[in-house]
């Protein structure tokens, strides 16, 4: 089985981080995985996206036109990737940032006001992690514990507050 995902949003929303963390968790499951970032001026703002392919078999192209799952965290990304989601696929939106709704009936949607939830709960900057929590609940790609383990595992013990915030954000998304 192969799952293709595109994460897109503004530079600074943690788009690349979300993609990397997803790829890393899939790698720890023993899957084949590719992570293809957009690179260049994005890291200084503007739009940012990355593509993750997870497969039990050999992965051909790491670059994907129509993903199974598109995660969009701003309006330009919605406009760009909403039409491209594969029929039967999933569109995940941060509805705080996107005031549009898809009119497509052939795709499933997951709408999370992630940025709002984040700012209301002292988790500003963790909207991406909230979204990740919601995705793993919805798709069952990973268990909460395996995802959380790698998420906090990469943060040094000395940064306990950062660990707590990540866990809180992931749980908030998971339980949304």
């Amino acid at each position: 089985m192969t799952t293709t995902m595109i994460f897109a949003g503004s530079g600074g929303q943690g788009i690349q981080f979300s993609g990397k963390q997803t790829a890393k968790t899939a790698m720890h499951q023993g899957k084949n995985v590719t992570f293809l970032p957009s690179y260049g001026p994005e890291m200084r703002g503007g739009t940012s996206n990355c593509t993750v392919v997870i497969s039990d078999g050999e992965i051909g192209s790491p670059s994907v036109t129509s993903p199974d799952i598109a995660v969009v965290m701003n309006l330009p990304s919605f406009d760009k990737f909403e039409p491209r989601v594969k029929a039967g696929g999933l569109l995940v939106c941060d509805t705080t940032m996107i005031d549009k709704k898809t009119e497509r009936a052939d795709i499933d949607t997951l709408c999370v006001p992630a940025s709002e939830l984040a700012s209301e709960n002292g988790l500003t900057g963790f909207a991406n992690v909230i979204i990740l929590g919601a995705i793993i609940k919805k798709t069952g790609l990973f268990t909460f514990d395996e995802f959380l383990g790698l998420l906090v595992g990469s943060i040094p013990e000395s940064k306990a507050a950062l660990r707590e915030k990540n866990e809180k954000a992931l749980r908030m998304g998971y339980e949304f």
């Binding site: 790829a23 790698m27 084949n32 995985v33 590719t34 970032p37 690179y39 790491p62 670059s63």
Partner: peptide, 10 residues
């Protein structure tokens, strides 16, 4: 090429 340089795989 730039894609292979930037992409991550195990």
């Amino acid at each position: 090429d730039g894609a292979l340089g930037q992409m991550m795989e195990p």
